Amino acid sequence: MKILQLSDLHYRSQYLPAENGYQEMLMKMENPLHYLDLAIKKAKAQTAIDLVLITGDLTEDGEVADYAFLKDYFDKAFPDTPVLVTLGNHDIKENFYQGWLKNVPTSNYYNFVHAFEDFYLLSFDSSVYGQADGQIDRGQLNWLEDMLSTHQDKPVLVMTHHHLLEKQYATPQLPQAQQVWQILKRYDILAVINGHTHSHYQTTVAGIAYYTADGLSFLGQDEGAGMVRFIQHAGFSLYELKDGQLAEINAEVVTSGRFLQKVDMRLC
């Protein structure tokens, strides 16, 4: 099985006019749809894709119409391929349920387990709109433990948005990351994949493969004292599931890294 991971689209049908700060940076950014198109085209040229996973921040600010647009976009781009998502801190649960799922709005965590022939996909929602580092409660940890304990006949691929390693990136990890790892280490985990940092990363934690995909919008480079240098940055990751192992077969950047703007994030 070949799996395409996309992340951090930060899509908005129209970015807000601004004269400084983060919003001005977004105005200078090329439309993420351009690079989404390019990433999908490049991935399809390399292999037949059996599954698409999107690891959060589908939208910039969670508009219902933006979710509806993206759902239609992916239905057309992958008419015969499952497209499964988790949510990020820029996503609004109520609007996602309404726009993407065409369902009754709710603030419930968007969690699920999807069974495939050789593994389970577990989508674990770490998002709280407006909390950049994410947040999960005891109920989420209990749900994770319950799902893993009742799905032990196949390995589990865990998909979430926030990164779970302290020194992986300048921005903090999920505050409850250690509690999550304590649970994961007790089960047969195929891999953990996530997004949030917009920067590719891979390692192994207690024998568990761990992958973070590039985003499809921008990349913030920490310069200290609250200053962040933003560049245009987009990429994708491809994996192959074979003989019970998940291996990354390509992680490709599809932008030139054009400078956008420096922003004092303390003022945002």
Rank of each mutant, 00 (worst) to 15 (best):
Leu87Ser: 00
Gln178Cys: 13
His10Gln: 12
Leu87Tyr: 02
Leu33Ile: 15
Asp61Lys: 13
Ala77Leu: 02
Ser199Lys: 12
Gln131Met: 11
Lys71Ser: 06
Gln261His: 13
Ala43Thr: 05
Ala247Arg: 15
Ala39Asp: 09
Asp61Thr: 11
Trp143Ile: 08
Gln152Arg: 15
Pro172Glu: 02
Gly139Val: 05
Leu267Ile: 11
Tyr239Pro: 07
Gln176Glu: 15
Tyr120Asp: 01
Tyr15Thr: 13
Ala177Gln: 09
Gln221Leu: 14
Lys242Thr: 06
Ala225His: 13
Ile49Lys: 14
Gln232Asn: 10
Thr86Met: 02
Glu24Cys: 11
Thr203Val: 01
Phe116Met: 04
Leu9Glu: 04
Thr86Asp: 03
Ala251Glu: 11
Leu121Met: 04
Ile189Ser: 00
Asn250Gly: 05
Lys93Leu: 07
Gly134Ser: 00
Ala191Ser: 09
Ala247Gly: 06
Ala77His: 00
Tyr11Leu: 01
Ala251Asp: 13
Arg12Glu: 15
Leu164Tyr: 00
Tyr169Ala: 09
Tyr211Leu: 07
Ile49Gln: 14
Ala209Cys: 07
Leu87Met: 07
Ala234Arg: 13
Glu30Trp: 05
Asn20Leu: 13
Thr212Gly: 10
Tyr73Pro: 03
Thr86Asn: 07
Gln173Thr: 10
Phe236Ile: 03
Glu30Phe: 07
Phe69Arg: 13
Asn194Ala: 14
Ile208Pro: 01
